[in-house]
Design a binder for these strands. Structure first.
Length: 224
DNA sequence: TCATTAAATTGTT
DNA sequence: AACAATTTAATGA
């Protein structure tokens, strides 16, 4: 058994795949390493790979016409993204930037399409993942209108505990308050203050460049 | 291994 | 948004 095989076998989407499908996936996969702050791709680039994070953290973002940075999501170890662009065979709509040193698994488009055409297990995974994404974005729109900074920070953090999108569960999230502010769409001071208040309430503890979550459930349901 | 320095992150005005 | 303080990481003896 080699590293690549292990990579596929432990992937979240491989659970329902038949042995021959796993073998097929294994042959279509490769690994790449990126330094902290590196661009995996710019908006408008083509990236003909379905991508999984092995270690590290990737930011999905764009820069608006007014020059303001917007972050849509953080992608952590074990989660896979980009199926939309690969399925539609179109350029990426967002910048992909690593927030720290990151190793990625890249599944080639031909392999992805083969699995899409032939594997029911793979399709079941895709449907579940897309469904989960929709739910996530709907809830984002929902709390975007509520606008309590503390609740926004809490729910942004709760993203990292979605078992579908973040299969590798940890209580510590390696993220700076500045990056979290980008995720939450708030200024850094407000994010920082909210974090300290949430710490007061015993839901988490903040350290340098790291947030230790104590009550993830309370965070995801946080109101007021 | 320890001390010094540089860089990054966080807190405050 | 700018500055100050704190903490981590890097460098070299």
């Amino acid at each position: 058994m080699n590293a690549r095989e292990d990579l596929v076998r432990t992937a979240i989407w491989a659970e329902e795949l038949a042995p021959d499908e796993i073998e097929r996936a294994r042959r279509g996969i490769s690994e790449r390493q990126f330094a902290k702050g590196a661009y995996i791709c710019h908006r408008g680039d083509r990236l003909d790979c379905w991508t999984g994070v092995i270690t590290g953290l990737v930011k999905v973002s764009t820069i608006s016409r007014s020059g303001k940075a917007m972050t849509f999501a953080g992608v952590g170890p074990g989660s896979w993204f980009g199926e939309g662009s690969v399925l539609k065979d179109e350029p990426r709509k967002y910048d992909l930037v690593t927030l720290r040193e990151t190793r990625l698994a890249m599944l080639s488009r031909p392999t992805f399409m083969w699995l899409f055409e032939n594997s029911t297990g793979f399709n079941r995974f895709l449907v579940r993942q897309l469904n989960e994404r929709i739910a996530q974005f709907i809830s984002t729109v929902e709390y975007d209108r509520i606008l309590h900074p503390k609740a926004r920070v809490a729910r942004s953090l709760a993203w990292f505990f979605n078992p579908m999108l973040y299969p590798v569960r940890r209580t510590e999230i390696e993220i700076t308050q500045e990056e979290l502010a980008l995720l939450a769409g708030l200024s850094r001071p407000v994010t920082s203050k909210s974090l300290r208040e949430l710490e007061e309430e015993g839901l988490l503890s903040v350290e340098h460049g790291l947030i230790r979550v104590i009550d993830a459930n309370a965070l995801s349901n946080y109101e007021v």
